[in-house]
Design a binder for these strands. Structure first.
Lengths: 141, 141
DNA sequence: GTAACTGCAAAATATTTGCATCCTT
DNA sequence: AAGGATGCAAATATTTTGCAGTTAC
C-alpha cells in the first residue's frame, strides 16, 4: 500500500510527503467517499486543517480524486479511476448516497445511461447521483 | 404574478410576507437556478442575509424549491414542479450546468433514464447533472 | 541547495442562533 | 390579540491567504 500510494504521487509529479501519503491511504482504505471533516477525524488532528484543504485541492487538480455532487452542501471526494488526466476528469460512473448511513459510494460498474439533451445544448460530462438505501443498511437497518 | 406567488405561499401555509414574495418572484423570473448570493444581489440588500437563509430553507421544506447537486460547493435552488409535497421532493428531471456562463437550468422535458443498481441497493431518488455548453452560449460563446 | 510543502496566525466568508420588534392573519 | 417572520447582533463554522520554517529531491 505504502508503495502504491507513493507511486500515485510520483506519477502526478508531487513530492511524496507524509500528509499526502496518509490522506491518500485514507481514500484507499475507505469504502466510500470522504469529506474534509472525515479526513480531519481520521487523521486525529495529526496535521493542520489547512494542509487538508490544500492537499484535497491538489489531488483534484491532478486528477487523483474527484468531487462528488451532493444536494446538501457537503463536498465529498473519492478516488478517480486510472484514466483521469490532470484537469480533465471524466467520470462515467454512478454515485450512490445512502440516506441511512450517509455514506457515499462510487458504483464503478454501473454505467451512465445516455441523456437526450434539447437542441443547442452540448454535453461534456454527466453526473448521476442516486440516493436510497445501501446494501449494508438494507440488511441491518 | 403577484397573485401566483401569493397563492403558492398560502397553499404551503406560509404567511405572505414581502421577502417571501420577492424571493419567490426571483425564481419565477429567472431562467436558471439561483444561489444564495444571486438572491442577495437581485434584492440589492433590501433584506437581511439571514432572512434569505431562512426563506430558502423554508421553501425547501415546503417543497416550493429544491436544491440542485453541484460538484463545487455552491448550493443552487430552483422551483419545484407542482407535484412536490412538503418533505417529499421527487425530482425527475435533468439539471444542466453551463461551463461557460455558469447558469444552472432544469431541463423539465428531459426524463431521467433508469439506472440499474447492484444487488442490495434500493433507489429513492436519482439526480442527473449534465455539464457542458448551454444553448445561449453555443450561439454567442 | 533549491523548490516545494507544511504549520501557524490571521483574514475573509459563510452559516447559525437568540432575542426584541414588527407584520400577517 | 397571537403567532409567526424579520432584523440585528453575535456566536460558530468554513475557507483562503501570507509568511516563516521544514522537508523532499
Amino acid at each position: 500500500m505504502e508503495k502504491v500510494v507513493a507511486d500515485t504521487l510520483k506519477r502526478s509529479q508531487l513530492s511524496v510527503t507524509d500528509s499526502r501519503k496518509r490522506i491518500l491511504e485514507f481514500f484507499h482504505h475507505s469504502d466510500g467517499a470522504l469529506a474534509h471533516g472525515d479526513i480531519e477525524k481520521l487523521s486525529g488532528d495529526q496535521f493542520d486543517r489547512v494542509t487538508i484543504y490544500r492537499t484535497l485541492q491538489t489531488f483534484v487538480e491532478k486528477g487523483i480524486i474527484h468531487s462528488i455532487p451532493t444536494a446538501d452542501n457537503s463536498i465529498r471526494y473519492a478516488l478517480c479511476q486510472q484514466e483521469c488526466e490532470a484537469g480533465h476528469h471524466h467520470d462515467n460512473h454512478v454515485h450512490f448516497v445512502c440516506d441511512s448511513c450517509g455514506n457515499t459510494f462510487c458504483l464503478n460498474h454501473v454505467t451512465i445511461p445516455p441523456v437526450q439533451l434539447p437542441e443547442g445544448f452540448t454535453s461534456k460530462q454527466t453526473d448521476v447521483v442516486v440516493s436510497g438505501i445501501c446494501k449494508k443498511c438494507g440488511i441491518n437497518p
